[in-house]
């Protein structure tokens, strides 16, 4: 876990700013889709064990809707949009106009599933493009994939690259603001999980060296 020990406070601030810019843009995109004001909280940058990572998403067997994509290009990593089921239901209703859609009645229609997948695509795409603009790097999202299942089962995919070098992860966590979405227990997270090499590349692109 050497790359994690090397991180200094300035670099953590930079990672926080990445979360801020990225999630800010994603919030704007979501506002445009829902025609409603959406805010995001100041991002958290945390160094966590894999188990703590699961806790951040509500626990390993907590059922969530997670949109997962890989970041490819000059730097690589994993990105998750994690939504609680009431929020996923709310968003699907908004996007499809099917007011009676219920997240509890499986299997889901193709339309419901792909609308949420597309939402994940738009939000993570705007997060990533602002990150690319900010750093001047070429970053491409893979086609996102949606799973409505246990958080641990989904998030472990984002830890695979990291787990080859480390037992801890640096996660840039941004929370969607609760009040504006009309769902009872709103909780939406963006997790950016950079691969180990990501840090050197991003900091070099921004002119910050690891030895500062």
């Amino acid at each position: 876990m050497s790359f994690i020990e090397k991180i200094n406070p300035l670099q953590l601030d930079i990672l926080k700013e990445i979360g801020n810019i990225g999630a800010g843009n994603a919030a704007t995109a979501l506002s445009a889709i829902l025609n409603r004001k959406i805010d995001m909280n100041v991002p958290n940058v945390r160094i966590v064990s894999f188990d703590e990572m699961m806790e951040m998403a509500g626990g390993a067997d907590h059922v969530v809707a997670s949109v997962f994509l890989r970041i490819e290009g000059d730097a690589s990593g994993s990105m998750f949009l994690i939504l609680t089921l009431p929020v996923a239901q709310y968003l699907i209703r908004q996007m499809t106009g099917e007011e009676t859609f219920s997240i509890d009645s499986t299997p889901y229609t193709e339309l419901a599933f792909s609308s949420l997948q597309e939402l994940g695509n738009i939000l993570s795409g705007s997060y990533l493009s602002s990150l690319a603009d900010f750093t001047g790097l070429n970053l491409y999202p893979s086609v996102p994939s949606l799973s409505i299942d246990m958080a641990g089962a989904a998030i472990s995919y984002g830890l695979l690259e990291l787990s080859q070098v480390s037992d801890a992860a640096i996660v840039i966590d941004t929370v969607l603001e609760k009040d504006q979405l009309h769902a009872e227990s709103f909780d939406g997270h963006f997790f950016l999980l950079p691969d180990p090499e990501f840090f050197d590349i991003i900091f070099a692109a921004l002119g910050v060296t690891l030895n500062d």
């Binding site: 894999f50 699961m54 626990g59 037992d167």
Partner: peptide, 20 residues
């Protein structure tokens, strides 16, 4: 937990959550 192991004897049980 994930990437962890443990052992038990009766009467306890052993569990792991969120296997993908």
């Amino acid at each position: 937990g994930i990437a962890d192991m443990n052992i038990i004897k009766p009467p306890h049980s052993i569990r792991t959550s969120g296997l993908g």
